[in-house]
């Protein structure tokens, strides 16, 4: 019994510690060097849809089950991915589709690397000369 409690506590501590920082990334030649958290929120709400050079922004999300997406949602929207569902239903009714979904961080990075004006996020700093980090969101540890 004591062992079970110890394992549970250790798992909980590890799970809190496993909350990684989030790196906001885009293509190396994108017309932006840094992004504010407020701009990032507006982009992921599809309220801000153009870069400063008037090119359409293409935000990339991970699937609704992704813990990293949940973490990002809590930071920039102050609510869960699930709670954001009703927002996207309303937007969909208005003709605004939610950010495109990629199945994994690797798939998202590959997409951003290939598709101009896209923006996404990852839990590890990308070691790729075709990508650049616009913002590091530090999560409470």
């Amino acid at each position: 019994m004591k062992l079970n409690i110890l394992i549970l506590c250790t798992s909980l501590i590890l799970s809190f510690n496993s909350w990684a920082d989030i790196y906001i990334v885009t293509q190396k030649n994108a017309p932006i060097e840094h992004i504010s958290q407020q701009d990032l929120t507006a982009i992921y709400l599809k309220k801000k849809i153009y870069w400063d050079n008037s090119e359409l922004i293409l935000p990339i999300n991970l699937s609704a089950q992704s813990p990293l997406r949940e973490q990002l949602s809590q930071i920039i929207f102050k609510r869960s991915t699930r709670a954001m569902g009703s927002y996207w239903d309303k937007m969909s009714f208005k003709g605004i589709s939610p950010p495109l979904i990629q199945a994994s961080e690797q798939a998202a990075l590959l997409f951003i690397q290939r598709i101009p004006n896209s923006i996404g996020y990852t839990s590890t700093k990308p070691d790729n000369s075709l990508l650049k980090v616009l913002l590091k969101l530090e999560t409470p540890k």
């Binding site: 609704a64 569902g85 969909s92 009714f93 589709s97 939610p98 495109l100 979904i101």
Partner: peptide, 18 residues
């Protein structure tokens, strides 16, 4: 399938309803 609507052609077309 919760949030994901039907997308076609790299997010250019979205089909939904209720």
């Amino acid at each position: 399938y919760a949030e994901e609507a039907l997308f076609f052609n790299k997010n250019k077309w979205n089909v939904s309803g209720y």
